[in-house]
Write a protein that binds this DNA or RNA. Structure first.
Lengths: 246, 246
DNA sequence: ATCTTGCTTTGATCCTGATCAATGTCAGTG
DNA sequence: CACTGACATTGATCAGGATCAAAGCAAGAT
């Protein structure tokens, strides 16, 4: 929580703290780097890449939301990650995408061609270190999510997802999650179900139940209002003390 | 699959490919490194570290099996990782353990004090790179496990776990998993249940069911024999083609 | 305005896996 | 040997969430 002022050359969110290639820094000034770095936009619903496809870039999310997911032959789908602005996509050193990546909303990626990115990593060890820290964070999140998938009830799952989105939304707007906050729910009921290992009907029912218990309010179907953050946290089943406040 | 002969100075399994600190390399010769590196043994059932405790070392598993798990206040437990020989424990740059680590069998760890390990990382960039690759692998495994937890049936979950253990056992003994293989099941029914997000009764019933379907055979309660590996793979619900053979 | 279309809600019923409870197995011990 | 205690199996019943089905709702298209 150092209150360093925002530096457009080093926004602090992208993995590459290097002024030539920082992903959110005045794109128009960096056009001459086209052969290393480029922006790419996707419409809501469009696939970014399918599992198994060769992946010749790494990227970080500039705006919008994407999902990482896995589908079985018979169509059962499990979302394994939610990619929000500042999240990183791609595995340096790997040939193929391990999972499907799909744009949920309109999406802008800041992409780096993989080869030049890897040589940049070689010459700038701090990038590798940053990437290791980010990967460790993601691993911890994935493991925390395993508890949600394996042991929580439907109601606790919904509450956990809402809390995560609320916190990430607050973090994105650089403020603390607090009582009375509202945010836009970026996922359809089906996408939430795929994330939580539920059916969309169960998601809908549990959201209705949380509304009836006045844990949340809805304006329309997608705008969520949280009157009492502690009440929502209480519904997640998590240890109230142990919670990291992001 | 390069058939390089085994080099006791660089066993190829531990993250630290550096001859002063390779974890499985002739421990007795390295006693003078006591202040950086030391071996530690735990009995079956002993905790290695609890979530939230300060963690002043990183380690790699030399022999035995440990589990990474998370427990809710009301006692619901979810295992989030299985640590087998050559697996790495610890997060350079982090103060506290994120999860509980418990020895399932007798366990030997090769520990490195964190500070010297971190400075070694600083002076030897290849260690960081290796660690990044290992962490990316673990992240992929964790995400694959999310599909198991979120979308698979009890029978598919059991089959998936047996297959993972069979493959890791085969890899450990440096041979391919094949028909007619046998291995020792290192986990109790309860530990399997914690891993799979099931109850121990369901685990027991599904193991009995797989036995009745002749997908597996049991000698005693822990010795598993697999007469037809493809049959087991067929029970996992996974895409038969897409399977990586380790 | 009416019709689409995609998303969501709600209802009725079913089924998988949880829960509660009893019994079985076996290695270790006196 | 019988006794103990930890682990495992099996049975009976229950409940949470899935499944199948029918409307409801809102934004765009005609």
């Amino acid at each position: 929580m150092n209150d360093t002022s925002f530096n457009p050359r080093d926004c602090g969110t992208c993995p590459i703290r290097h002024r030539a290639v920082c992903s959110r820094c005045e794109p128009e000034e960096l056009d001459h780097l086209d052969d290393i770095k480029y922006y790419r936009t996707y419409e809501a619903g469009q696939p970014v890449i399918w599992a198994g496809d060769p992946m010749e870039f790494v990227a970080s999310v500039v705006t919008g939301i994407a999902t990482l997911s896995q589908t079985m032959e018979d169509g059962r789908t499990q979302m394994v990650g939610l990619l929000l602005p500042s999240d990183f996509i791609g595995r340096p050193g790997r040939e193929h995408a391990p999972f499907d990546v799909v744009a949920v909303t309109d999406l802008t990626l800041c992409c780096f061609r993989k080869k030049p990115f890897e040589s940049l990593m070689g010459s700038t060890p701090s990038i590798g270190g940053r990437l290791l820290q980010m990967t460790l964070d993601e691993l911890d999140s994935a493991r925390e999510w395993m508890l949600v998938l394996g042991r929580k009830t439907a109601r606790e799952k919904i509450a956990s997802l809402l809390l995560i989105i609320a916190r990430r939304d607050a973090a994105l707007h650089k403020r603390l999650p607090k009582d009375g906050m509202s945010f836009d729910l970026p996922l359809t009921r089906e996408a939430m179900a795929d994330y939580l290992g539920l059916t969309l009907e169960t998601v809908s029912r549990q959201i209705s139940a949380l509304k009836k218990s006045e844990v949340i309010n809805l304006q329309g179907k997608r705008q969520v209002h949280i009157p009492d953050l502690q009440k929502l946290i209480g519904e997640t089943g998590d240890d109230v003390d142990g919670g990291h406040i992001f």
